[in-house]
Write a protein that binds this DNA or RNA. Structure first.
Length: 296
DNA sequence: GGCCAGGTCCAAT
DNA sequence: ATTGGACATGGC
């Protein structure tokens, strides 16, 4: 069964490689394999049409958030370059438990490693989805012990993952789905290993809360370039107040933009204690990892 | 081979 | 309330 879904302006490759979801793999020919929500679908794009195999329309529309209003014009013209760089980006609606685990895994890491860690957890503990297919991400009760996870290379995150799995089993990810956003964030932050940044990512990428503005090292740099140095907590507020219902989208656009070298301002750590004397500005931002320039 | 990474927790101001 | 280190491992 092949689905053709109207997805105006979408850039599927950008969406799947923007660092919000870690299990999409390019199959070649513009096709992607996407294990999510306990199944494996395939997708490609034909202009404004999303072509999907292996899922029913309602499921695909929900995962790709196709019924959402596209982000309106930015209130702040300074983010225009970032939004241009991220044209076609969509925010997916991920499965909450996998999203929780993935963003715990993301701590002090990088996208290639996060992807590998998430894949390793699936291959080690997940249910088989079929011959030749990747495994599902393990359910909370299937995730291994802390020692198992350390053996997979998860490091200090292993303890947090085990705690989050216990929470997901005992409380359940659906129990908090109806909470107001700040209550949801509070509930998530009661899990050891989840603080503001990871909670924001989960609220944004799994619970559809587009009004949050997760602040990581890249966003810290972007906000510094746009509005000057401030603490992460302030930057988070700044983004929420400035971009309102679009904060999450703008944040992800800034993330893509910053990682692609859109920033030239220096950065000095999470608390904005910048050296008062003007430091020699780096002339080049540093040759950081690109977002695979070859990939569409 | 270092440096630093989609952070968080804890102890010491 | 703010701040510096520790935490495990691996990309580049």
């Amino acid at each position: 069964m092949t689905l053709r879904l109207h997805a105006p302006g979408i850039d599927l490759a950008l969406t799947l490689e923007s660092g919000q979801f870690f299990r999409a793999r390019a199959l070649g020919g513009g096709w992607w394999r996407i294990p999510t929500h306990g199944r494996c679908l395939e997708a490609s794009q034909d202009g404004d049409t999303l072509v999907v195999e292996g899922a029913e329309a309602n499921f695909a529309r929900a995962f790709f958030a196709l019924d959402e209003e596209p982000a309106g014009p930015p209130r702040d013209p300074r983010v225009r370059p970032a939004l241009d760089a991220a044209r076609g980006l969509r925010i997916l609606r991920q499965e909450p438990w996998e999203c929780i685990a993935a963003f715990i895994t993301s701590q002090v890491s990088n996208i290639p490693r996060i992807s590998r860690n998430v894949e390793d957890m699936a291959e080690a503990f997940g249910r088989a989805l079929g011959p030749g297919l990747p495994r599902a991400f393990p359910r909370p009760e299937e995730l291994g012990t802390e020692a198992d996870l350390r053996a997979l290379g998860l490091g200090f995150r292993a303890r947090y993952l085990v705690a989050a799995a216990a929470w997901a089993r005992e409380v359940g990810t659906e129990r908090v789905a109806g909470l107001a956003t700040d209550e949801l964030l509070g509930a998530l932050q009661r899990i050891p290993g989840i603080a503001a940044k990871v909670a924001d990512c989960i609220a944004l990428f799994a619970y559809g809360r587009r009004e949050v503005f997760p602040v990581d090292t890249w966003i810290r740099q972007a906000v510094t370039a746009l509005a000057g140095r401030m603490t992460d907590a302030r930057a988070r507020q700044w983004g929420r107040e400035r971009f309102g219902a679009n904060a999450g989208f703008v944040q992800q656009a800034l993330f893509v933009w910053a990682r692609n070298g859109g920033i030239s301002a220096p950065d000095d750590g999470p608390n904005g204690s910048g050296s008062s004397g003007a430091p020699p500005p780096r002339t080049s931002p540093r040759p950081r990892s690109r977002l695979r320039p070859g990939a569409r």
